[in-house]
Amino acid sequence: MPEAKKNIVWLASYPKSGNTWFRIFLSNLFSDSPQAVNINELTETTMSSNRSIIDSYLGMHSSELTAKEIDKLRPQVFKRFSDEKEGTAYVKTHEAWTLNSIGNPIFPKEITKGVIYIIRNPLDIVISYSYHNNESIDKTISILNNDFSKLCEKKEKLNIQTQQILTSWSSHVRSWTDDSNLPVHIIRYEDMLDHPLKSFKRAVDFLNLKYEESEIINAINNSSFDTLKEMETSDGFKERGIYSEAFFRKGESNEWESELLETQINEIVKYQHKIMKRFGYLKESE
């Protein structure tokens, strides 16, 4: 293998934290057209669990490999992907940053340009994620609180994505922001809503992208919640969960105040309070 290029940007987040919104912003930023890009034609990004890409670099069906075998091989898949990629590649992931069975990081440092880590209040995530999966709030809380949570885990069926280690919400945040030893820029979903220009501009600066403020504002406007909702209503969105009515549902923060029961809030806070406090989702006194 030739010398590694540091050309991969991991767009990492727990599910339903604003990752897709950020990807759409990037697609609009990179677009030559002043019009909003079609949400069903986001060509700028791929996913870390994309089975077709993994199969292609392996030279065999990953569907005939165990999750452990796939994870053992994925660092090499990503290195080859990086080597063949001209320029920067933006790769979406909902996985926690982890080591594989032989102790290698699944997301190799030597090819990583940086990480955009998008964080959202877990009290709001559970509501959004329960709609996405058509699961109860209580079931969703149990996923967020479980350090062994995985995505696409079922062994009796084939998923178009490979299995992904999700972990609990706090472990997920810590894995990327503390453990990974990668250059990480953290964006709060709530800041993307309340202070979009400041928030997106900082991310653009972190990625060392050269755009005028007017171009960033245009990309923000073209990826506004109302625009995305309108596009989904009119043409659908291929990334909508198979069980949910819409991907772009409310695009708000603090929905938990009216939607969650006190017992549900307590259940989340009990497990997640340290990281919630660290990122401003709990008052110091709580």
Partner: peptide, 16 residues
Amino acid sequence: SGVLFEAALNDFLFKF
């Protein structure tokens, strides 16, 4: 080559 294979003219290696 790929992660699990090497290829040449009329010669191919696969290792797992």
